[in-house]
């Protein structure tokens, strides 16, 4: 009993995000003109999985008390690279996928290397590297266009057995292959320790540098998976800085809604996935309820601000005012 209560308390943010998503998704489906069919679910997931992957990417640096403002740019870079390299036969396409994911991981590794060995602040480092990655994306694809291996693309954005959206399977696979092993590895635990208190972690012999490096590298990899999925959805690449900016912004919001602390050491990528789903469902709700398009940006902004303001509940629980400044 105590164990259960502890678990509920420990995962409060995650559970709240899941509950919020379920409620909103039920409202969405019950007001949808067609209702819940495989096609509607697939369209919804294809959009939501993109943000979910980028939000997962953002979670890892945030857990180490860092931040990656270049996730959106890596996402776009992977999109542009995929529109050039993931073409031809299925074999060549698969090779291209490996190349794109490798490039994403390399971009993340460079971020991590500059932060760890260059000892620069994550915010300013990733702002600058983001400009570089965006420049490379523009170089690869100066104008929108390109192509993608259609067999792989259809497989990744269609339905499995005619029911399950394949994008959801990709997301699940990413969680099983990347997140869960990472979470239970030494370096994954180290990332949480670093986020809680870096000096204490260092004094306890936690591999601080390797933990940070791995967190940023995996963030690059996850953002690249997102960029790959975007290419499978649009069949083209576009170096668009507004899209990159929106994904970076929304990834941070998704991380916060998913119950991960921006102060590090607390939260999970699973929460961020549901945070991303919540944000996407808000957009779909606006569509279903036929809100005047002029009001949509304001409404989204207010919801975003309200969602992040939930974090202020922390202030009410604090007994000693000095804890406010921590």
């Amino acid at each position: 009993m105590n164990d259960l209560r502890h678990r509920i308390h420990h995962n409060g943010g995650l559970l709240a995000a899941i509950a919020l998503f379920i409620v909103m998704f039920i409202i969405y489906i019950s007001n949808h003109p067609v209702g819940l069919t495989a096609a509607v679910a697939t369209t919804a997931t294809n959009k939501a999985v993109l943000l979910a992957l980028v939000a997962m990417a953002q979670t890892l640096p945030v857990l180490t008390r860092g931040l990656d403002l270049s996730v959106g740019m890596v996402f776009i870079l992977a999109n542009c690279l995929a529109s050039v390299f993931v073409v031809g036969t299925i074999g060549e396409g698969l090779l291209g996928i490996v190349l794109v994911l490798g490039a994403g991981a390399l971009a993340g590794f460079i971020n991590g290397a500059i932060i760890v060995w260059g000892r620069l602040q994550p915010i300013i480092t990733t702002l600058a590297t983001g400009a570089v990655y965006y420049g490379i994306a523009l170089y690869v694809r100066p104008g929108p266009g390109g192509d993608v291996q259609s067999d792989i693309a259809d497989l990744a954005t269609g339905q499995l057995f005619g029911v399950v959206p394949a994008a959801l399977v990709v997301l699940l696979a990413t969680v099983l292959i990347v997140w869960l092993p990472y979470r239970h590895s030494v370096l994954g635990r180290a990332a949480y320790a670093v986020g809680s208190n870096e000096q204490a972690a260092y004094m306890s012999g936690v591999p601080v540098q390797r933990a940070k490096l791995l967190a940023y590298t995996l963030a690059g990899l996850l953002a690249a998976i997102g960029g790959l999925m975007l290419t499978f959805n649009t069949y083209s690449g576009e170096a668009s800085s507004p899209i990159a900016g929106t994904y970076t912004l929304n990834s941070i919001a998704a991380v916060v809604i998913g119950g991960t602390s921006l102060f590090g050491g607390w939260g999970s990528a699973i929460g961020s996935i549901f945070g991303a789903f919540v944000l996407r469902t808000i957009e779909d709700l606006l569509f279903v309820f036929d809100l005047d398009p002029l009001w949509q940006p304001l409404f989204q902004g207010v919801v975003l601000l309200a969602a992040v303001s939930l974090g202020a509940v922390r202030v009410l629980r604090i007994r000693n005012r000095l804890e406010l400044f921590a």
Binding site: L67, I123, L249, I252, A253, V256, L262, F263, L294, W295, Q296, P297, L298, F299, Q300, G301, V302, L304, L305, V308, S309, G311, A312, R314, V315, L324
Partner: peptide
């Protein structure tokens, strides 16, 4: 007063002001 991280709060504020301006110019 809410003790929210400035990075996320000002980002949200940016989105709200953007929404207001879209409404202002369009409406």
């Amino acid at each position: 007063y809410l003790r929210l991280p400035s990075m996320i709060f000002t980002l949200g504020m940016n989105a709200v002001v953007q929404g207001l301006m879209v409404l202002h110019t369009g409406g």
